[in-house]
Amino acid sequence: MRLSADGLIFWQHGILKLNGTIVFSWAIMLVLVLGSLLVTRRLSTSLQPARWQSLLEIVVTTIERQIEDVGLRNPRKYLPFLGTLFLFVATASLFTVIPGYEPPTGSLSTTAALALCVFVAVPLFGIEDRGFGGYVKSYLEPTVIMLPFNIISELSRTLALAVRLFGNMMSGAMIISILLTITPFIFPVVMTLLGLLTGMVQAYIFTILAAVYIAAATSSRKAKKPPNGAATPSPVPAT
């Protein structure tokens, strides 16, 4: 039994291979990019934009607001990275309604890749914002003794990001496939719906956690107070 789309190999030459994860990821990328191009081809600046433009504007502005709520002062700077993270994970979950589709986020390779991106992006944004010295110094806070713990924390949270998303998505797909063999009618539909919800929640959690990590790495964390306490950086959810 395949745990993820990694096992679905379409083409292989040496270490190079074209598995289901990559193919489905391309499909998602294609849909996202083409959809965006189609909608933004004729953007209206009037007071009544088109429906699809309105939808994308709502999505973009909501993500922007969420990033701002986390505590990042200049949300537009982080929007492409965090927004794409959310849209990719969300779309990957959303497409589970298509028969034969296997979410690339159900592969630990994909989630590890995304977590690695976050793992690299956090220090990059931190160094850009506070300078190399300032960022490295943050590992020595509150005392030098905390340095190994801070490094372990960085690594573990990256691992946690990858595993959390993988576990959730994989388990969802797994449950549905198992249920299809046991009760092929109705119940898998309910589980698919639940999977959609879980996928959305996971996309949200993944993005917010990435934003929190970036906010922690930048100086804005000190100056910024969480607005209304709604988006207070919370401990990592144990989902």
């Binding site: 990694d6 291979k17 990019v33 965006s36 492409p80 849209l87 390779s109 890749a113 690695l116 991106c117």
Partner: peptide
């Protein structure tokens, strides 16, 4: 974890970020 897939997905993701 398939490390080739990881690398490919990292590249894919970065391309997606740029495109988006």
């Amino acid at each position: 974890i398939d490390w080739f897939t990881v690398c490919a997905q990292v590249i894919n993701f970065l391309i997606l970020v740029w495109l988006m």
